[in-house]
Write a protein that binds this DNA or RNA. Structure first.
Length: 535
RNA sequence: GCGGGUGUAGCUCAGUGGCUAGAGCGUCACGUUGCCAACGUGAAUGUCGUCGGUUCGAAUCCGAUCACCCGCUCCA
């Protein structure tokens, strides 16, 4: 399935447009058209309904250690700048990068290590990607660079242990990690991954604020407010849907990596001893949700992060990944990450930014031995009323991309098949096989012909259905063409008023996928459609 | 950010320096037909991505720029 066809259909049918298209577009920004906005709303509403509104908090769900509560939240996009300092985004999203002019590769300035090496009257700082094997790598590169064989290895003199490239001032004496010549690295340049803005009339450092790069922090800083106002007990999940912004270096692959995007996140707070079970539960629960919404098992994988990818405080992180058509065969793109975050976030907002690398977690200090970023000092802990136990809850975070999910559903829905035309000849058909819950338009209403009073009856049916569903009325052109047009929009049901309707108040309802028609009473239409959507 | 490709009607594309820029599909109107992309007649739609240059003359040649696609790079 080619991505171009999907992109083309998205524009033609009004699912997605490039942002600011008439001015040439803007990289990494996309607009949802009339069908797209309905689709995305349905994705978000299905998620919200299944995770929050219709959540059964009385029963123990399959695979869960106990019943749990769910609440919702909607926080601001701009928050106190200290939030991002304590969350780690401020440091993490201000990367300095160096480019290699020779190999055209780019490296994080602080992730290259090297050693001063001297041979044949030349002194060069030879670099390699930071890692366990950096010493061997640097030795190999030194031999190659100075053209010295293994038996003459003593001719190479090393000055000190590997140090970070950030400590080197003159890049003209540096050999890049993949370069053959010296001095090919550019000066480090800042890549600001958070969008900056200013609060108040004056621009300047004091008023500097950021557009949130994730919705999660709004939940952490409101954790106490939610507990106090709802009288809920742990375990408790808090859900939020909202826009986030990341100034990605290379937006790519349609809406997959956008600079403005929408997240559907849950922060699930529980007792530390139970956190592993809850992590397992959420992985399975979220996987099952995508299956229910029509993503087949062979196109969705759960990729468990390897231990060296994990922060040490985390029991695990798993990505739910979909086989997007723009990915290479056998490769998958992330839809949702489910991570165990321990008590890192809550503690960072209490005590100050913790050092992710410390074990056990300790406050991150600056050069003067003071806290690098001060926390709120507020008590965000939890006291169990029954046992009297006080603890900082652990957090499981299922974090999904609404735009990525929408894109996955679009890709998954796109189908080309063959159906017979009026002469029985097979014709190609493009049909968007959305799950009825996700379909932008639930039903279309047609009069079979534009005469004999059929349009009048059809319009009445249309207006009645419109009270409950997004429906579409069409009387133009041949009936077959109208069916096909709805197939492209992914409308699951087409209702046709014909000659018989005028006699017995029945209409036909046609199924998008099977093309089968069933005759039903007009009075029962609403119930029938609702039942079919609910499955 | 680098290298390669692309950019002409809503869509797919033709048009390699010369008359008013074309085709198919789609859209709209009228007529006819009446259950899976029908037919006839008529109509609308373009600063040829944008800006600049060369030229008597540019969709076409040159430069810059923007966007998209592919490959690097990056991706809490």
């Amino acid at each position: 399935m080619s991505m171009e066809k999907i992109v083309s259909l998205c524009k033609q049918c009004g699912f997605l447009f490039q942002s600011s298209e008439i001015y040439g577009g803007l990289q990494g920004f996309w607009d949802y058209g009339p069908l797209g906005v309905e689709l995305k709303r349905n994705v978000k509403e299905s998620w919200w309904k299944d995770m929050v509104v219709c959540h059964d908090d009385m029963s123990t769900l399959d695979g869960a250690p106990s019943p749990y509560a769910m609440e919702g939240l909607d926080c601001t996009i701009i928050m106190h700048p200290q939030v991002w300092k304590c969350s780690g985004h401020y440091d993490l999203f201000h990367d300095y990068m160096v480019d290699c002019k020779e190999t055209k590769k780019r490296y994080r300035h602080d992730q290259l290590n090297g050693r001063w090496v001297e041979a044949k009257n030349q002194r060069v700082f030879i670099t390699a990607a930071a890692g366990d094997d950096e010493v061997e790598l640097i030795e190999k590169r030194a031999m190659k660079f100075f053209k010295i064989r293994a038996k003459n290895i003593e001719d190479i003199k090393y000055d000190g242990d590997p140090i970070c490239l950030t400590e080197i001032e003159n890049l003209a004496e540096v050999l890049g990690p993949d370069a053959k010549a010296v001095g090919t690295l550019t000066e480090p340049r800042e890549f600001n991954l958070m969008f900056k803005t200013y609060v108040g009339a004056l621009s300047g450092e004091e008023g500097t604020a950021f557009l949130r790069p994730e919705t999660a922090q709004g939940i952490f800083v409101n954790f106490k407010n939610v507990l106090d106002s709802t009288r809920q007990k742990l375990p408790l999940g808090i859900a939020q849907i909202g826009k986030s912004f990341r100034n990605e270096i290379t937006p790519r692959n349609f809406t997959f990596r956008s600079r403005e995007f929408e997240q559907m996140e849950i922060e699930f707070f529980c007792h530390p001893d139970e956190s592993q079970k809850w992590y397992q539960f959420w992985r399975d629960r979220r996987m099952a949700w995508y299956h229910e919404m029509g993503i087949p098992e062979d196109r969705l994988i759960l990729r468990e992060h390897t231990p060296d990818e994990l922060a040490h405080y985390s029991i695990g992180t798993a990505d739910l990944e979909y086989a997007f058509p723009f990915m290479a065969e056998g490769e998958f793109g992330e839809l949702e990450g489910i991570s165990h975050r321990g008590d890192f976030d809550l503690r960072s907002h209490i005590e100050g930014k913790l050092d992710e690398k410390s074990n056990p977690l300790e406050l991150q200090l600056d050069e003067n031995g003071k806290p690098k970023w001060k926390g709120s000092g507020k008590n965000l802990g939890y006291r169990d009323e029954l046992t009297g136990e006080k603890y900082i809850p652990h957090v499981i975070e299922p974090s999904a991309g609404a735009d990525r999910a929408t894109l996955a559903f679009l890709c998954e829905a796109y189908t080309e098949d063959e159906q017979p035309d009026e002469n029985g000849k097979m014709q190609k058909r493009v049909v968007m096989k959305f799950h009825p819950r996700l379909a932008p338009i639930k039903a279309a209403v047609f009069p079979l012909v534009k005469k004999d009073g059929m349009p009048e009856v059809a319009k009445k049916v249309y207006l009645d259905l419109k009270k409950q569903f997004k429906v579409f009325y069409d009387e133009k052109g041949a009936i077959g063409r109208r069916y096909r047009r709805q197939d492209e929009a992914g409308t699951p049901y087409c209702i046709t008023v014909d000659g018989q309707t005028l006699e017995d108040q029945t209409v036909t309802i046609r199924d998008r996928d099977t093309l089968e028609q069933q005759r039903v009473k007009i009075d029962e239409l609403r119930d029938i459609i609702q039942r079919r959507i609910d499955g």
